[in-house]
Design a protein around this nucleic acid. Structure first.
Length: 570
RNA sequence: GGCCCCAUCGUCUAGCCGGGUCCAGGACACCAGGUUUUCAUCCUGGUAACGCGGGUUCAAAUCCCGCUGGGGUCACCA
């Protein structure tokens, strides 16, 4: 076995199967594969593993490509995609195609070679027969292993029957020797031959299994380093066996720890459906409350825990149920207003550590893609499983947002709103968001949070809901000074020409001084009048966002409201 | 259940390979102060961990063994 530790010409790959959205765990695998290639001056290849004919889909494939591009995990070779002016993918080394379903001839050639060399063989048992044997073994509490019954027939006969078109699978003749994986993250892992049987490398439908396809493709595409999830660790000896049978070099392997939910359960794409099903049951909903899904499909979905609703339907359902779905797929995080840089940063740090100190002695935790692409090493990976902490991610995201210039923030926020919050995008254009930026940036952890912060500007002047406590404290309590100040400031507002945040701040300050009260005495009544609540961005910004006319109107409305409250109480 | 992987604050981790400088450092969260016209930001301080039991050693978070716990895997899915 050749262990390729030489990084020159290093090639890594990410090979998702297009059976759903890009899962956050998959994104991390892709990110680290990308980082490893970059850090070693190599290439990152994207390959689509669509050998499962029943589950693969074109739309899922496109979604995965776009999610990766959005994250900025750019593949050098693979399916082509234009994204925000960048052309990704391509086949400069002529090692494609990058869709396994288009590579059947390649697999069949290699399978034929194996069969003729006696290293693999066709077997003709019906699936039912094997299933029965497996069930029997489980019932008897012994491990099931294929019994090599297929070998009872002579090789010539087997090949003849196969060539005559008889239904069959092809199995690899597993050698009777232990196999050691030299794992870059976990160290050496040895598995005994008793743990293996002659596993299938080509299915009845003529498609190769994952094991065969991945080995042939990695070899033919020149992949030198394989980084993948730890769930594949046990598969690796099988892959090494195929490589040896075919005379291929064995790439360097690194198996990464898996990511879990905070409660310790596995982070699954079904988590969203699971939560929705629970809510439906708790709320005792009988028929489907959303359009586009029939009651029949709804009932099936509810009963079958493996069944998933389409993404849009699930979002609509969550809204009806009043629940928040957990973010699981990259798309979910994008919708929730996370920045790709922050997501990548957090994802990389979940299981990898640069082990570098900042000048102030704290550990380096915040870094960008350039840094990752220069410094990533498998040696910095931890071995243990980790839990996905959304709170820390959110903190990273808030930091990333705060670090944005006002212009960058406005641009990103507007683009986000156009895609996910039409009402917000309709109320504020990018220029308006630029004026909002200083007020919003330090107050939101995600782009979606921004809406809450400027929520007061989203409601009509006469539709403000007043926070009773806030009104009482700022305007009614005590000697009614709050209301007087508010009324007095009303005429100051009316006389202002320059209604900008700075001008407003000055006006408020001056008026407070002229009345010989502290800023707060005037600021809080104004804030309550303008927003209905005791909490808002700085007053100058808050009032400027609304505009002079709206502020004047809201002061009038508030006064009327307070008077009504006071007379009702007395 | 068999086999395989893993195990430091609530969470992510540094330290472990080359035992002593670790009554264990950082980050997020949390708590208490401070700055601030509110909120947020920001600043200061604090609570909090080597899973358990054996060894080896003058000395163990660091090395060895066992246990416990978590996870993966046992498909004509990938």
């Amino acid at each position: 076995m050749t262990d390729q530790t030489d990084s020159t010409g290093c090639i890594t790959r990410f090979a998702p199967s297009p059976t759903g959205h890009l899962h956050i765990g998959g994104a991390r695998t892709a990110l680290l594969c990308w980082a490893f290639a970059k850090a070693n001056g190599g290439k990152f290849v994207l390959r689509i593993e669509d050998t499962d004919q029943t589950r693969s889909s074109e739309s899922s494939m496109r979604g995965i490509l776009e999610d990766m591009a959005w994250l900025g995990i750019e593949w050098d070779e693979g399916p082509e995609l234009s994204f925000e002016g960048k052309d990704l993918g391509g086949d400069p080394r002529a090692v494609g195609p990058f869709f396994q379903a288009q590579r059947l001839d390649l697999y069949n050639t290699h399978i034929r070679t194996l069969i003729e060399a006696g290293k693999a063989y066709p077997a003709f048992e019906a699936p039912e027969v094997l299933d029965a044997a497996r069930k029997e073994a489980i019932a008897a509490k012994t491990g099931y292993k294929y019994n090599r019954a297929g070998l009872e027939i002579s090789l010539e006969d087997r090949i003849a029957r196969m060539d005559a078109g008889e239904a069959h699978v092809v199995r690899l003749m597993m050698p009777d020797e232990s196999i050691t994986v030299h794992d870059a993250i976990l160290g050496d892992v040895t598995v005994e031959p008793s743990e293996f049987d002659d596993f299938i490398i080509r299915k009845r439908d003529g498609f190769p299994t994952y094991h065969l396809a991945v080995v042939v493709d990695d070899a033919l595409m020149g992949v030198t380093h394989v980084l993948r999830g730890q769930e594949h660790l046990i598969n690796t000896p099988r892959h090494i066996a195929i490589q040896r049978a075919l005379g291929f070099d064995t790439p360097s392997y690194g198996h990464m720890p898996l990511i879990f939910n905070p409660d310790g359960s596995k982070m699954s794409k079904r988590d969203k459906d699971k939560l929705a099903k629970k809510a439906v049951k708790e709320q005792k909903i009988e028929s489907c409350p959303i359009e586009g899904v029939s009651d029949e499909d709804f009932a099936k979905w509810l009963k079958d825990k493996t069944r998933q609703l389409a993404s849009d339907d699930l979002i609509a359902l969550a809204e009806v149920l009043g629940i928040t779905l957990p973010e699981i797929d990259v798309e979910d995080f994008r919708r929730a207003g996370y920045l790709p840089g922050a997501l990548n940063n957090y994802l990389a740090l979940l299981g990898w550590n640069p082990k570098v100190k900042n000048e102030d002695g704290t550990d380096l935790e915040h870094f960008d893609m350039d840094y990752l692409g220069q410094h990533f090493t498998t040696g910095g990976m931890s071995k243990g499983q980790s839990k996905f902490d959304r709170v820390k991610l959110m903190s990273f995201n808030g930091d990333a947002i705060a670090a944005l210039s006002d212009e960058e923030f406005a641009s990103l926020w507007f683009a986000w709103a156009q895609q996910y919050d039409a009402e917000l995008a309709g109320r504020f254009d990018e220029a308006a968001m630029l004026t909002l930026a200083p007020a919003v940036k330090t107050r939101c952890k995600t782009l979606a949070d921004g809406r809450t912060i400027v929520g007061f500007a989203l409601v009509a002047d006469d539709a403000i809901e007043y926070d009773g406590k806030a009104v009482h404290k700022a305007l009614i309590k005590g000697d009614k000074k709050g209301l007087e100040l508010l009324t007095g400031f009303r005429s100051v507002v009316a006389a202002m020409d320059d209604f900008t945040p700075d001008a407003i701040e000055v006006a408020v300050k001056d008026y407070a001084e002229s009345q010989e009260v502290g800023m707060g005495k005037l600021a809080q009544p104004l804030r309550v009048a303008a927003t209905g609540a005791a909490v808002s961005p700085p007053l100058g910004q808050t009032l400027a966002i609304l505009g002079k006319d709206a502020v004047a109107k809201r002061i009038d409305l508030c006064e009327a409201y307070v008077e009504a409250q006071v007379s009702a109480a007395s």
